[in-house]
Amino acid sequence: MATSQQQYVGVDLDKNGGAVTDAVVEAIQQDNPGVELVDFNIYVKVKAPQRMIIRRQLVEDILGRNWDLQELHMVMASYFGFIEEWDEEKLVIRWSADES
């Protein structure tokens, strides 16, 4: 295990989600630095170094309709990292190894 390697957090999103999946991906890209996408045909892996935030408001703005964070359950096939917060407004996933 290379200790110098970056720790990533992320989500695997079902591409059946269509416009919702696209909007969530775009919101993640806008809000988080260093986002990488890996396409797996039926789902897309969205990862970011150390921490990732998904904000309801931004997804709504991109999607152009009301969107509840609970709807994420329908498209989030998996995730990795610790879920630090999940409320009406945002989802935060992170590793905490570098906490000081």
């Binding site: 295990m1 720790q7 990533y8 990795f80 610790f82 590793w95 190894a97």
Partner: peptide, 14 residues
């Protein structure tokens, strides 16, 4: 390797 050993177990080291 990436998500668990390199991700999670680094966190559990503490």
């Amino acid at each position: 390797e990436d998500q668990v050993l390199n991700g999670l177990f680094k966190d559990l080291f503490k």
